[in-house]
Protein backbone atom coordinates (compact mmCIF):
# COMPACT_ATOMS: atom_id res chain seq x y z
CA UNK A 1 0.00 0.00 0.00
CA UNK A 2 2.73 2.43 0.97
CA UNK A 3 4.50 1.62 -2.26
CA UNK A 4 1.33 2.36 -4.16
CA UNK A 5 0.95 5.75 -2.51
CA UNK A 6 4.58 6.61 -3.25
CA UNK A 7 4.02 5.64 -6.86
CA UNK A 8 0.91 7.77 -7.00
CA UNK A 9 2.66 10.77 -5.55
CA UNK A 10 5.52 10.34 -8.00
CA UNK A 11 3.13 10.14 -10.93
CA UNK A 12 1.28 13.19 -9.71
CA UNK A 13 4.45 15.23 -9.32
CA UNK A 14 5.58 14.17 -12.76
CA UNK A 15 2.33 15.10 -14.42
CA UNK A 16 2.29 18.44 -12.62
CA UNK A 17 5.81 19.12 -13.77
CA UNK A 18 4.76 18.27 -17.31
CA UNK A 19 1.87 20.69 -16.99
CA UNK A 20 4.06 23.50 -15.78
CA UNK A 21 6.45 22.93 -18.66
CA UNK A 22 3.68 23.25 -21.23
CA UNK A 23 1.64 25.93 -19.54
CA UNK A 24 2.83 28.75 -21.72
CA UNK A 25 -0.75 29.36 -22.59
CA UNK A 26 -4.17 27.83 -22.45
CA UNK A 27 -6.96 27.13 -24.83
CA UNK A 28 -10.48 26.26 -23.83
CA UNK A 29 -12.68 24.57 -26.45
CA UNK A 30 -16.43 23.99 -26.39
CA UNK A 31 -17.08 21.20 -28.87
CA UNK A 32 -19.50 18.49 -29.94
CA UNK A 33 -19.01 15.03 -28.41
CA UNK A 34 -16.91 12.53 -30.37
CA UNK A 35 -15.89 15.00 -33.05
CA UNK A 36 -12.15 15.62 -32.80
CA UNK A 37 -9.36 13.05 -32.45
CA UNK A 38 -7.35 13.37 -29.24
CA UNK A 39 -4.13 13.02 -31.28
CA UNK A 40 -4.92 16.24 -33.10
CA UNK A 41 -5.40 18.11 -29.81
CA UNK A 42 -2.12 16.64 -28.59
CA UNK A 43 -0.40 17.70 -31.78
CA UNK A 44 -1.62 21.29 -31.36
CA UNK A 45 -0.63 21.21 -27.73
CA UNK A 46 2.90 20.07 -28.55
CA UNK A 47 3.35 22.36 -31.54
CA UNK A 48 2.41 25.57 -29.74
CA UNK A 49 3.04 24.64 -26.10
CA UNK A 50 -0.57 25.34 -25.24
CA UNK A 51 -2.54 23.49 -22.62
CA UNK A 52 -5.85 22.46 -24.17
CA UNK A 53 -9.06 21.77 -22.26
CA UNK A 54 -12.31 20.76 -23.90
CA UNK A 55 -15.93 20.47 -22.79
CA UNK A 56 -18.56 18.88 -24.99
CA UNK A 57 -22.23 19.42 -25.84
CA UNK A 58 -24.79 17.37 -27.73
CA UNK A 59 -26.88 19.97 -29.53
CA UNK A 60 -26.53 23.50 -30.83
CA UNK A 61 -29.29 24.63 -28.51
CA UNK A 62 -27.63 23.10 -25.45
CA UNK A 63 -24.43 24.96 -26.31
CA UNK A 64 -26.28 28.24 -26.71
CA UNK A 65 -28.10 27.77 -23.41
CA UNK A 66 -24.90 26.99 -21.57
CA UNK A 67 -23.10 30.01 -23.03
CA UNK A 68 -26.04 32.26 -22.21
CA UNK A 69 -26.20 30.91 -18.67
CA UNK A 70 -22.86 32.46 -17.81
CA UNK A 71 -20.22 30.47 -19.69
CA UNK A 72 -19.31 33.34 -22.00
CA UNK A 73 -15.80 34.40 -21.20
CA UNK A 74 -14.68 30.94 -20.14
CA UNK A 75 -14.31 29.39 -23.62
CA UNK A 76 -12.18 30.61 -26.49
CA UNK A 77 -13.78 28.76 -29.38
CA UNK A 78 -17.00 26.84 -29.94
CA UNK A 79 -18.28 24.76 -32.84
CA UNK A 80 -21.84 25.80 -33.75
CA UNK A 81 -23.73 24.63 -36.82
CA UNK A 82 -24.61 26.96 -39.71
CA UNK A 83 -27.88 28.49 -38.46
CA UNK A 84 -26.50 28.74 -34.92
CA UNK A 85 -23.57 30.88 -36.13
CA UNK A 86 -26.14 33.36 -37.40
CA UNK A 87 -28.05 33.28 -34.09
CA UNK A 88 -24.89 33.74 -32.04
CA UNK A 89 -23.67 36.58 -34.24
CA UNK A 90 -27.07 38.22 -33.90
CA UNK A 91 -26.79 37.99 -30.12
CA UNK A 92 -23.34 39.58 -30.19
CA UNK A 93 -21.61 36.46 -28.92
CA UNK A 94 -18.90 36.32 -31.60
CA UNK A 95 -15.64 38.18 -32.03
CA UNK A 96 -14.19 38.94 -35.46
CA UNK A 97 -10.70 38.48 -36.86
CA UNK A 98 -8.85 39.87 -39.86
CA UNK A 99 -7.33 37.84 -42.68
CA UNK A 100 -3.92 38.93 -41.44
CA UNK A 101 -4.64 37.22 -38.13
CA UNK A 102 -5.59 34.03 -39.96
CA UNK A 103 -2.77 33.25 -42.42
CA UNK A 104 -4.52 30.11 -43.67
CA UNK A 105 -7.74 31.95 -44.47
CA UNK A 106 -7.03 31.33 -48.16
CA UNK A 107 -7.26 27.57 -47.59
CA UNK A 108 -11.01 27.79 -47.10
CA UNK A 109 -12.79 26.31 -50.12
CA UNK A 110 -14.28 29.04 -52.29
CA UNK A 111 -17.88 27.89 -51.90
CA UNK A 112 -17.57 28.09 -48.10
CA UNK A 113 -16.15 31.63 -47.89
CA UNK A 114 -19.24 33.69 -48.63
CA UNK A 115 -21.85 31.76 -46.71
CA UNK A 116 -25.14 33.26 -45.60
CA UNK A 117 -24.40 32.83 -41.93
CA UNK A 118 -20.99 34.55 -42.03
CA UNK A 119 -20.25 36.47 -45.24
CA UNK A 120 -16.51 36.54 -45.91
CA UNK A 121 -15.76 34.37 -42.86
CA UNK A 122 -15.02 37.10 -40.35
CA UNK A 123 -15.75 35.20 -37.15
CA UNK A 124 -15.87 31.57 -38.19
CA UNK A 125 -14.00 28.97 -40.20
CA UNK A 126 -15.46 25.79 -41.67
CA UNK A 127 -14.95 22.72 -39.51
CA UNK A 128 -16.78 19.88 -41.25
CA UNK A 129 -19.91 19.59 -43.29
CA UNK A 130 -22.21 16.71 -43.89
CA UNK A 131 -25.84 15.81 -44.15
CA UNK A 132 -28.69 14.60 -41.99
CA UNK A 133 -30.95 11.91 -43.31
CA UNK A 134 -31.48 8.34 -42.17
CA UNK A 135 -29.94 4.90 -42.50
CA UNK A 136 -31.69 1.60 -42.98
CA UNK A 137 -30.50 -1.82 -41.95
CA UNK A 138 -30.41 -3.74 -45.22
CA UNK A 139 -30.84 -7.11 -43.50
CA UNK A 140 -34.23 -5.95 -42.23
CA UNK A 141 -35.52 -4.09 -45.25
CA UNK A 142 -34.75 -4.65 -48.93
CA UNK A 143 -37.07 -2.14 -50.60
CA UNK A 144 -36.39 1.36 -51.92
CA UNK A 145 -35.13 3.58 -49.13
CA UNK A 146 -34.64 6.89 -50.91
CA UNK A 147 -37.86 8.41 -49.65
CA UNK A 148 -38.68 10.13 -46.37
CA UNK A 149 -41.77 7.92 -46.14
CA UNK A 150 -39.43 5.38 -44.49
CA UNK A 151 -39.37 7.66 -41.45
CA UNK A 152 -42.71 9.46 -41.58
CA UNK A 153 -45.00 6.79 -43.03
CA UNK A 154 -42.99 3.59 -42.64
CA UNK A 155 -43.85 0.24 -44.22
CA UNK A 156 -45.27 -2.30 -41.78
CA UNK A 157 -42.04 -4.26 -41.30
CA UNK A 158 -40.18 -1.15 -40.11
CA UNK A 159 -42.82 0.20 -37.77
CA UNK A 160 -41.69 0.38 -34.16
CA UNK A 161 -38.06 -0.07 -35.20
CA UNK A 162 -37.14 3.56 -35.85
CA UNK A 163 -34.95 5.92 -33.86
CA UNK A 164 -35.14 9.62 -34.68
CA UNK A 165 -32.69 12.32 -33.64
CA UNK A 166 -33.82 14.26 -30.59
CA UNK A 167 -33.26 17.41 -32.60
CA UNK A 168 -36.22 19.67 -33.26
CA UNK A 169 -34.72 21.71 -36.10
CA UNK A 170 -33.57 18.78 -38.22
CA UNK A 171 -36.64 16.62 -37.63
CA UNK A 172 -39.08 19.41 -38.49
CA UNK A 173 -37.00 20.35 -41.55
CA UNK A 174 -37.15 16.77 -42.86
CA UNK A 175 -40.87 16.58 -42.08
CA UNK A 176 -41.43 19.81 -44.02
CA UNK A 177 -39.53 18.39 -46.99
CA UNK A 178 -41.65 15.25 -46.88
CA UNK A 179 -44.80 17.38 -47.00
CA UNK A 180 -43.30 19.58 -49.69
CA UNK A 181 -43.79 22.75 -47.64
CA UNK A 182 -41.15 25.42 -47.04
CA UNK A 183 -39.16 25.43 -43.80
CA UNK A 184 -40.40 27.87 -41.17
CA UNK A 185 -43.67 28.25 -43.03
CA UNK A 186 -46.11 30.81 -41.66
CA UNK A 187 -49.07 29.20 -43.44
CA UNK A 188 -51.44 27.88 -40.79
CA UNK A 189 -52.76 24.95 -42.80
CA UNK A 190 -49.22 23.84 -43.53
CA UNK A 191 -48.26 24.10 -39.87
CA UNK A 192 -51.32 22.06 -38.92
CA UNK A 193 -50.39 19.44 -41.50
CA UNK A 194 -46.87 19.35 -40.06
CA UNK A 195 -48.26 18.80 -36.57
CA UNK A 196 -50.54 16.05 -37.83
CA UNK A 197 -47.81 14.29 -39.77
CA UNK A 198 -45.63 14.04 -36.67
CA UNK A 199 -48.53 12.93 -34.48
CA UNK A 200 -49.30 10.11 -36.91
CA UNK A 201 -45.66 9.12 -37.31
CA UNK A 202 -44.79 8.97 -33.64
CA UNK A 203 -46.47 5.63 -32.84
CA UNK A 204 -44.10 4.05 -35.38
CA UNK A 205 -40.99 5.39 -33.66
CA UNK A 206 -39.23 3.36 -31.00
CA UNK A 207 -37.12 6.12 -29.51
CA UNK A 208 -35.78 9.66 -29.71
CA UNK A 209 -32.05 9.98 -29.24
CA UNK A 210 -29.04 11.71 -30.73
CA UNK A 211 -26.07 10.32 -28.83
CA UNK A 212 -27.50 6.81 -29.22
CA UNK A 213 -28.19 7.22 -32.97
CA UNK A 214 -25.20 5.12 -34.04
CA UNK A 215 -25.37 2.52 -31.28
CA UNK A 216 -29.00 1.54 -31.88
CA UNK A 217 -28.11 0.73 -35.49
CA UNK A 218 -25.02 -1.23 -34.56
CA UNK A 219 -26.78 -3.19 -31.81
CA UNK A 220 -29.80 -3.88 -34.00
CA UNK A 221 -32.23 -2.19 -31.60
CA UNK A 222 -33.39 -0.06 -34.52
CA UNK A 223 -33.73 -0.96 -38.20
CA UNK A 224 -34.04 2.67 -39.27
CA UNK A 225 -32.21 5.54 -37.69
CA UNK A 226 -32.38 9.20 -38.54
CA UNK A 227 -28.70 10.06 -38.41
CA UNK A 228 -25.85 12.32 -39.47
CA UNK A 229 -23.89 11.10 -42.51
CA UNK A 230 -20.60 10.52 -40.69
CA UNK A 231 -22.29 8.72 -37.84
CA UNK A 232 -23.86 6.38 -40.36
CA UNK A 233 -20.46 5.71 -41.94
CA UNK A 234 -19.11 4.91 -38.47
CA UNK A 235 -22.03 2.56 -37.82
CA UNK A 236 -21.18 0.78 -41.07
CA UNK A 237 -17.53 0.55 -40.03
CA UNK A 238 -18.62 -0.96 -36.73
CA UNK A 239 -20.37 -3.77 -38.55
CA UNK A 240 -23.95 -2.66 -39.08
CA UNK A 241 -25.22 -3.49 -42.57
CA UNK A 242 -26.72 -0.05 -43.04
CA UNK A 243 -27.29 2.07 -46.12
CA UNK A 244 -27.55 5.84 -45.90
CA UNK A 245 -30.47 7.35 -47.79
CA UNK A 246 -30.54 10.47 -49.94
CA UNK A 247 -34.34 10.81 -50.05
CA UNK A 248 -35.95 12.13 -53.19
CA UNK A 249 -37.91 14.73 -51.20
CA UNK A 250 -34.66 16.25 -49.96
CA UNK A 251 -32.39 16.04 -46.94
CA UNK A 252 -30.61 18.37 -44.56
CA UNK A 253 -27.07 19.58 -45.10
CA UNK A 254 -25.23 21.37 -42.39
CA UNK A 255 -21.84 22.81 -41.75
CA UNK A 256 -20.20 23.04 -38.38
CA UNK A 257 -17.90 25.98 -37.88
CA UNK A 258 -15.25 26.95 -35.40
CA UNK A 259 -16.13 30.39 -34.09
CA UNK A 260 -14.08 32.87 -32.13
CA UNK A 261 -16.11 33.70 -29.04
CA UNK A 262 -16.44 37.20 -27.70
CA UNK A 263 -14.40 37.77 -24.50
CA UNK A 264 -12.24 34.75 -25.27
CA UNK A 265 -9.71 34.54 -22.42
CA UNK A 266 -6.97 33.30 -24.80
CA UNK A 267 -7.78 35.03 -28.06
CA UNK A 268 -4.29 34.53 -29.54
CA UNK A 269 -4.30 30.81 -28.90
CA UNK A 270 -7.82 30.57 -30.28
CA UNK A 271 -6.63 32.12 -33.54
CA UNK A 272 -3.65 29.78 -33.60
CA UNK A 273 -5.98 26.84 -33.14
CA UNK A 274 -8.36 27.96 -35.88
CA UNK A 275 -5.45 28.57 -38.22
CA UNK A 276 -4.09 25.13 -37.29
CA UNK A 277 -7.40 23.54 -38.26
CA UNK A 278 -7.21 25.18 -41.69
CA UNK A 279 -4.03 23.22 -42.49
CA UNK A 280 -5.14 20.57 -45.03
CA UNK A 281 -3.41 17.83 -43.10
CA UNK A 282 -5.21 18.69 -39.85
CA UNK A 283 -8.58 19.21 -41.49
CA UNK A 284 -8.13 15.79 -43.09
CA UNK A 285 -7.32 14.27 -39.70
CA UNK A 286 -10.71 15.44 -38.44
CA UNK A 287 -12.40 14.09 -41.56
CA UNK A 288 -10.69 10.73 -41.20
CA UNK A 289 -11.91 10.57 -37.62
CA UNK A 290 -15.44 11.93 -37.96
CA UNK A 291 -16.14 10.73 -41.53
CA UNK A 292 -17.67 14.02 -42.66
CA UNK A 293 -16.18 16.39 -45.24
CA UNK A 294 -13.77 19.26 -44.61
CA UNK A 295 -14.29 22.72 -46.04
CA UNK A 296 -10.57 23.14 -46.69
CA UNK A 297 -8.66 22.93 -49.96
CA UNK A 298 -6.06 20.25 -50.51
CA UNK A 299 -7.19 17.61 -48.02
CA UNK A 300 -7.44 14.84 -50.64
CA UNK A 301 -3.90 13.43 -50.32
CA UNK A 302 -4.33 13.03 -46.57
CA UNK A 303 -7.71 11.28 -46.63
CA UNK A 304 -8.10 7.59 -45.94
CA UNK A 305 -9.69 5.63 -48.80
CA UNK A 306 -12.60 4.50 -46.69
CA UNK A 307 -13.58 8.07 -45.89
CA UNK A 308 -12.88 9.53 -49.33
CA UNK A 309 -15.05 6.90 -51.02
CA UNK A 310 -17.73 6.55 -48.40
CA UNK A 311 -21.23 6.62 -49.91
CA UNK A 312 -22.36 8.93 -47.11
CA UNK A 313 -19.89 11.64 -48.16
CA UNK A 314 -20.65 11.39 -51.87
CA UNK A 315 -24.27 12.46 -52.38
CA UNK A 316 -25.88 12.12 -55.81
CA UNK A 317 -26.13 15.22 -58.01
CA UNK A 318 -29.82 15.52 -57.24
CA UNK A 319 -31.66 16.08 -55.01
CA UNK A 320 -29.52 18.65 -53.23
CA UNK A 321 -29.61 19.07 -49.48
CA UNK A 322 -30.89 22.15 -47.73
CA UNK A 323 -29.60 24.01 -44.67
CA UNK A 324 -31.91 24.11 -41.65
CA UNK A 325 -33.31 27.61 -41.36
CA UNK A 326 -33.53 29.61 -38.16
CA UNK A 327 -37.22 30.46 -37.84
CA UNK A 328 -38.70 33.74 -36.70
CA UNK A 329 -39.92 33.93 -33.13
CA UNK A 330 -43.53 33.65 -34.26
CA UNK A 331 -42.94 30.39 -36.15
CA UNK A 332 -40.53 29.04 -33.56
CA UNK A 333 -43.25 29.38 -30.91
CA UNK A 334 -45.53 27.18 -33.05
CA UNK A 335 -42.66 24.75 -33.67
CA UNK A 336 -42.15 24.49 -29.91
CA UNK A 337 -45.83 23.73 -29.41
CA UNK A 338 -45.68 21.06 -32.13
CA UNK A 339 -42.59 19.59 -30.47
CA UNK A 340 -44.21 19.53 -27.04
CA UNK A 341 -47.32 17.94 -28.56
CA UNK A 342 -45.09 15.32 -30.09
CA UNK A 343 -43.43 14.42 -26.81
CA UNK A 344 -46.24 14.95 -24.33
Amino acid sequence: MKKLIKLGVAALTLSMAANIASAEGKLSIYHWFEYIPQELLDKFSAQYGVEVTMDTFDSNEAMLASLKAGKMGSYDVAVPGDYMVEIMAGDGMLDTFTKAEMPNHGNIMDQWVNVGFDMGRKSSIPYQWGSTSFSVNRDDYKGDINTLAIVFDPPAELQGKINVLDSQGELLALASMYLGIPQCTTDRDQLKALNELLQNAKPHWASFGSDIAKDVLVSGDASVGMIWSGFSAKAREEGANVEYAFPKEGYVVWMDNVVLLKDAPNRDNALKFMNFLLEPENAAAVTNYAAYTAGVKGTEPHLSDAVANSPESNPPASPVGEFVQACSQEVQTVYDTIWTNLKK
Binding site: G169, K202, S207, F208, G209, Q332
Partner: peptide, 26 residues
Protein backbone atom coordinates in the same frame (compact mmCIF):
# COMPACT_ATOMS: atom_id res chain seq x y z
CA UNK B 1 -36.98 7.87 -19.03
CA UNK B 2 -34.30 8.98 -21.48
CA UNK B 3 -32.24 5.83 -21.74
CA UNK B 4 -34.78 3.11 -21.00
CA UNK B 5 -37.98 4.83 -22.14
CA UNK B 6 -36.50 6.11 -25.41
CA UNK B 7 -37.20 9.77 -24.52
CA UNK B 8 -40.52 9.44 -26.33
CA UNK B 9 -42.56 11.08 -23.63
CA UNK B 10 -41.56 13.96 -21.45
CA UNK B 11 -41.29 13.36 -17.73
CA UNK B 12 -41.10 16.37 -15.44
CA UNK B 13 -37.31 16.24 -15.45
CA UNK B 14 -36.95 16.09 -19.22
CA UNK B 15 -39.67 18.71 -19.76
CA UNK B 16 -37.75 21.14 -17.58
CA UNK B 17 -34.44 20.23 -19.20
CA UNK B 18 -35.94 20.88 -22.64
CA UNK B 19 -36.89 24.42 -21.63
CA UNK B 20 -33.28 25.27 -20.82
CA UNK B 21 -31.37 23.11 -23.30
CA UNK B 22 -33.76 22.56 -26.18
CA UNK B 23 -34.73 24.66 -29.17
CA UNK B 24 -37.55 26.12 -27.09
CA UNK B 25 -35.17 27.98 -24.81
CA UNK B 26 -38.06 29.07 -22.62
Amino acid sequence: PDLLGGAKNFMIGSLIEEQFKGAAGN
